[in-house]
Design a protein around this nucleic acid. Structure first.
Lengths: 148, 148
DNA sequence: ATCTGAAGTGATAATAGATACCAAAAGGCG
DNA sequence: CGCCTTTTGGTATCTATTATCACTTCAGAT
């Protein structure tokens, strides 16, 4: 179970495992598409009484220890951060620009690209921030239909 | 002169060329590091009387027509959008995490990566959102010195 | 098991980046 | 040159996020 792994990582990094953190992580894991802190706070607040401060702090913390990822590609007109659960190693996300479904993209050769960029520019400790955006098969189909 | 190209593109896309838009584009072009709408509005507002609404709208517009780019890699603790001027074709940005200098990275093989991702997932119209972050040579040197 | 210091929580208030609205002032094409 | 549309900008407002701080809970040591 992925949740246990996430909670373990909390402990390993010197953070407490609290019911609230477990609930936030579980909600994030269960979400079918990227969620914002606001959305999680609304849902969890109503069902469990967790305060929004805790949701914000927990999401930030989960992102810090690598259990969550804050998407770089924000939707237009929404300037709020959206998160997805990801316990596995470095990888990227492919987001449907219609329904916002997220698919993980197996880590490609970006490490080499980082190295290449570093060599060509003289920068050190080069990392990257990368998301893919596209239309998932279902949305592409329905969009074609609507345009008839 | 890059500014003329940018203004031309405005016209081509059916937008008016106004003194305000010229000033915003010029300020963006002259900026040595990514600037936020707030910063531009403060500077331009004081020196030319341009309203902040216009700055926000113009930056959004410039980003839409491809003359400006809104960075994906936000600085921690700053949740405001930062823009850089870029009239040339698709490319990426390498940002120093200390001094925020921006270096353009010649467009790599990302188009092929997009295609590859599309094939493997069935998504259509796949694009990406990618920034690099690192330490520029100067900042790397001074950081090493400080750590002594 | 329980004690204890440190970490986590949450209600409220405050901050700040961004947007809505609308009257006044331009721009561009005929 | 003149009209119609687009653009502008002041103010009010929204909303996501952070600050504060008293209270509670966790985790490791005794």
């Amino acid at each position: 179970m992925e949740l246990a792994i996430a909670m373990d990582r909390l402990l390993q990094k010197g953070h407490a495992v609290t019911p609230q953190r477990r609930l936030v992580a579980r909600a994030l894991l269960a979400a079918p598409s990227p969620v914002s802190a606001q959305e999680l706070a609304a849902t969890l607040g109503a069902s469990t009484g967790i305060g929004q401060m805790t949701v914000y702090r927990t999401l930030t913390l989960l992102a810090e220890i690598g259990v969550a990822y804050q998407l770089a590609a924000a939707e237009p007109d929404r300037h709020e951060a959206r998160y997805v659960f990801c316990s596995s190693d470095h990888h990227h996300h492919l987001i449907c620009r219609a329904c916002h479904t997220v698919v993980e993209v197996a880590s490609c050769a970006m490490a080499e690209v980082d190295q290449d960029v570093a060599q060509r520019t003289g920068f050190q400790g080069v990392a990257h921030h990368l998301d893919f955006v596209g239309l998932c098969p279902q949305c592409a189909a329905s969009e074609t239909r609507e345009a008839h």
